[in-house]
Design a protein around this nucleic acid. Structure first.
Length: 279
DNA sequence: AGCGTTACGACGCACTCGTG
DNA sequence: CACGAGTGCGTCGTAACGCT
């Protein structure tokens, strides 16, 4: 076995793994979108009935309608699962096309968005703005994540509890784990809370579960561990959600709440805090 | 004070695999 | 084999922190 090289030497040998993609190059996906858009342009009338007939014939083009109303493929899947209990747009477009289009129109103003945008003339700036679109979503992502944290922080402040947010706490054998809200001294806290809200999916949801499992492992029996979990992203990641729920069933954690059941969270925290004479 | 770096939180998408 | 569910890696922004 070779001797471990100096860290900086190792650093120097790191190389780039991905190749640059020419944004003007054509791709199969681009061809598909272009063909679907052309098909839309040939529709005699753009209304709910016309679009329903169109998606029934072109079920694979539903994501193009999604793009027109500002839904990425991922967001489209998530709202469909939330509304229709499935993320499969092929089946929906073929079996319930009128229902699908009617809902997209009511919820996202599909017909108006489509007619307004199809007739527009676009500039170079419009193209660059569209390419930068993912930045906007990252901003919104941060905001939605903060929403749950803010709610539980409000409750802690309202109850007059001593707390810190987004930090680590100590439990068994001096081990530490992360938590979004820690009541009391982080070195020996009374209550720790995890807040995980996702409207989209991704391995980050698995990371969130790992984090809560870590909290459950590190906790002392006398410490109250609660989790506030919400967002439609979990509907597409049910295996992960189930793992958290199982921790609750097994009493590894003491409570699990969504935003609509936060009044119970408040009641549970209040009761525990009184018992410990924290308030 | 201003600037750059790091840690963290969330979204986006492609790929795999099971199933009818 | 087409479709849908599940899973892992990549992209992006903000806040906190440390250095000059």
């Amino acid at each position: 076995m070779a001797h471990a090289p100096d860290f900086d030497e190792y650093l120097k040998t790191l190389g780039r793994l991905t190749s640059h993609v020419d944004p003007t190059a054509s791709t199969p996906e681009a061809e598909h979108i272009a063909a679907a858009t052309a098909g839309l342009g040939e529709l005699m009338v753009t209304d709910v009935a016309g679009l329903a007939a169109w998606v029934r014939e072109n079920p694979g083009d539903v994501p193009v309608l999604g793009l027109a109303i500002g839904l990425s493929q991922e967001k489209l899947k998530n709202v469909l699962r939330d509304r229709f209990d499935t993320s499969g747009w092929h089946g929906l477009a073929r079996q319930r096309p009128v229902e699908l289009i009617t809902w997209l129109d009511e919820e996202f103003d599909l017909v108006r968005m489509l007619t307004a945008q199809m007739d527009r003339t676009y500039t170079f700036a419009d193209i660059l703005v569209a390419r930068a679109g993912t930045r906007l979503t990252a901003t919104r992502a941060g905001a939605s994540g903060r929403r749950i944290e803010d709610h539980i922080e409000d409750i802690a402040r309202d109850l007059g509890l001593d707390y810190v947010t987004r930090s680590r706490f100590s439990g068994r054998n001096g081990r530490t784990a992360p938590a979004d809200l820690i009541v009391g001294d982080p070195n020996a806290p009374d209550i720790v809370v995890a807040a995980k809200g996702f409207d989209s999916t991704g391995s980050k949801l698995t990371d969130a579960v790992r984090e809560i499992e870590e909290m459950a492992e590190v906790r002392l029996p006398r410490q109250l561990v609660l989790a506030v979990i919400d967002g439609i992203g979990w509907k597409s990641r049910q295996a992960d959600l189930r793992r958290i729920h199982q921790l609750w069933v097994d009493r590894q954690i003491d409570g699990m709440y969504t935003l609509v059941t936060l009044d119970r969270f408040r009641a549970d925290v209040t009761e525990f805090a009184r018992l410990r004479r924290l308030i």
